[in-house]
């Protein structure tokens, strides 16, 4: 306040920034180094300027033990988008049903959805695998995404958003002659757009970061996600090419960062203010 710089605060903030930046910088710089040098433990904070070609190399070829990174990025992006989109569609519909319609066992339905919050994939992983196996969905794209789609969190969030929609708005639409689907499409979804965008960001990152389920259900290397790929690159038998691993890690970071940056404005809006 009053125009003077608060030095202790700035020092603390600076330290905090450094703490977050340093590992990322280490990876950025490490990617450009000579793999042999890293293996000897000569990790430098100064990037080697002629080492940037490693990015093109991993995108096209990958590293020993893994698919080309370009392909794995596509698999990851497909999975994250499918999970985010699927979760949003399913939870909008279920939240719409439990919020705006009166039907028998409405609250039972709501609480049943609520309870699944306590059953994330990690808890139900064996039975889920068994179901996928019975449906012959092992090593398929649906097998990779569908079990992650049912989502109580998103349903709860949408329910809260929908509850905040004034009754008069619903009634005005009824008087205007809008049926349930039209109301959902023309009024409810546009009015909740900010929340929808915020949720998309969270769910995309959630989908992108999945590790355990893809590891279990997709043994075919063609379905390797980038997160799985990084782990596979750190070989046990072969010499690990650390510069390639680091370059892959940087590439794996970019899409979620891009989504967050692009949707930041909506994201903050959706979390902080209710649409008036």
């Amino acid at each position: 306040m009053n125009g003077r710089i608060d030095w202790p605060a700035h020092v603390m903030l600076g330290l905090g920034v450094l703490l977050f930046i340093l590992p990322i910088w280490l990876v950025l710089a490490g990617a450009t180094l000579d793999p042999a040098a890293i293996a000897r433990g000569e990790l430098s904070l100064v990037p080697r300027l002629d080492g940037w070609g490693v990015y093109a190399a991993v995108l096209a070829e990958g590293a020993p033990g893994a698919q080309p990174v370009g392909r794995m990025l596509l698999v990851s992006a497909g999975m994250a988008l499918a999970i985010a989109a699927g979760k949003i569609v399913i939870s909008i519909l279920s939240a719409y049903a439990v919020t705006f319609f009166r039907f028998p066992f409405r609250m039972t339905a709501f609480w049943t959805i609520f309870i699944t919050l306590m059953l994330p994939v990690e808890v139900r992983i064996m039975p889920t695998y068994s179901v996928m196996s019975d449906l012959s969905l092992i090593n398929t794209f649906p097998g990779l995404t569908v079990p992650l789609i049912a989502s109580a969190t998103a349903t709860l969030l949408f329910r809260q958003t929908f509850l905040a929609v004034p009754d008069e708005l619903v009634e005005a639409a009824r008087m205007d002659g809008a049926g349930p689907l039209r109301f959902l499409k023309d009024i409810l979804i546009p009015v909740s757009a900010a929340n929808l965008a915020a949720l998309f960001v969270i769910l995309f990152v959630y989908g992108w970061n999945q590790y355990l389920w893809p590891l279990l259900v997709a043994t075919n290397p063609r379905l390797d996600t980038i997160v799985i790929g990084i782990v596979k690159m750190i070989g046990t038998e072969t010499q690990t090419e650390w510069n390639r691993v680091m370059a892959t890690a940087v590439l794996a970071l970019l899409p979620p960062v891009a989504v967050v940056v692009l949707m930041q404005r909506w994201f903050v809006k959706g979390l902080t203010e209710g649409e008036k």
Binding site: E168, L169, M175, G177, D186, P190, V191, E275, K276
Partner: peptide, 20 residues
Amino acid sequence: DPAARDIAMVFQNYALYPHM
């Protein structure tokens, strides 16, 4: 149904569609 009655209503809080 309300829509079939050919009735229009003006609400206390106006109930305008905020995104339109």
